[in-house]
Design a protein around this nucleic acid. Structure first.
Length: 289
DNA sequence: GATCGGCCCTGCCCGC
DNA sequence: TGCGGGCAGGGCCGAT
């Protein structure tokens, strides 16, 4: 499931393998792929044809490729099962293919695969964001991620402490801090010894800064391992999976011993998804402050 | 405005 | 073997 580290691995691959190439043809296969694009598939393809990609960028889980026209970018969100791959041999090979871009150099095409169809492509204008950085409109609506130059730990910690929401909901809110998904939220909370239901406004300033630091640490470590992968749903542009799943402390480790205290990890339901924690290290907060 | 819950969607897994 | 239900979860939207 692509979160920030996985998106960064993909961005890096796009930078290496796609930037500098000129689009020859665009084929859209999925009805939902362009659901955020106001026009139709033919118009979308026309606007990309003969355009050269000039850069690969990311904020949180949002990716975009700038083009030589300068005013628009190809924006991509991988959802929970999206992949951007350059298939060896250039063939199809997957009935999950939602879009295909070929290039004038005759090299490997770029395929957008998406099993669960939560991902999307669109063309968006670039707007000035934090620090004057040009970002897509959709990326401008979310907060900077912890790896951006414009990210301020103190500001993020203050915003975190201004909400009464449960800590995990706040961490997952891309408008507060972008890039954190279900896996890294659980891992950061474990490192911080915080229960997911703790009201965010109950954190001390130091605890809020520490939590953000833990989130950055765990994502940084994941990035160094090439991302987290449990199955074939997440791969880099070369179709390879990451290795960080073996280093997770709580996520997906129900009934396994907590690496810190040995207590069995529990799985709980949180907002229609799973949450994993150590019941001893991460005790449920008192009902009221 | 802030918060919360439901929905979208497909494929895998498990129990019956 | 086949069927139904549960599960995975990022982002959006409507209700409160």
């Amino acid at each position: 499931m692509p979160e920030l580290p996985e998106a960064e691995v993909v961005r890096s691959g796009l930078h290496r393998w796609v930037v500098g190439r000129t689009v020859e043809q665009v084929t859209i296969l999925g009805d939902r792929t362009l659901r955020r694009y106001p026009g139709n598939a033919a118009e979308f393809a026309d606007r990309l044809r003969n355009r050269r990609f000039t850069g690969a960028h990311r904020r949180g889980k949002f990716l975009w490729l700038t083009v030589d026209s300068g005013d628009d970018a190809l924006a991509v969100h991988l959802g929970m099962s999206g992949q951007l791959v350059l298939p060896q041999g250039g063939g199809d090979g997957s009935h999950h293919m939602r879009a295909r871009l070929t290039f004038t150099d005759g090299g490997l095409p770029l395929h957008f695969l998406d099993q669960r169809t939560f991902g999307w492509l669109t063309l968006e204008p670039l707007v000035a964001g934090v620090g004057g950085r040009l970002v897509t409109e959709s990326a401008a609506r979310i907060a900077p991620d912890p790896f951006e130059a414009g990210f301020d730990d103190a500001v993020a910690a203050r915003r975190l402490r201004q909400t009464t929401r449960q800590l995990k909901a706040a961490l997952l809110d891309q408008h507060l801090i972008s890039g954190i998904g279900n896996i890294y939220a659980d891992e950061a909370l474990w490192r911080a010894r915080k229960h997911w239901a703790t009201p965010a406004n109950r954190l001390t300033p130091k605890a809020a800064r520490d939590l953000i630091g833990y989130a950055r640490d765990v994502m940084s470590e994941s990035l160094a391992a090439g991302g987290t992968s449990f199955d074939s749903l997440y791969v880099n542009v070369n179709g390879q999976s990451g290795y960080f799943s073996r280093d997770l402390n709580v996520y997906g480790r129900q009934n396994e011993p907590c690496p810190r205290c040995g207590t069995a990890i529990v799985r709980e339901s949180f907002a229609n998804r799973s949450s994993f924690r150590c019941p001893r290290c991460q005790r449920r907060p008192r009902a009221s402050a």
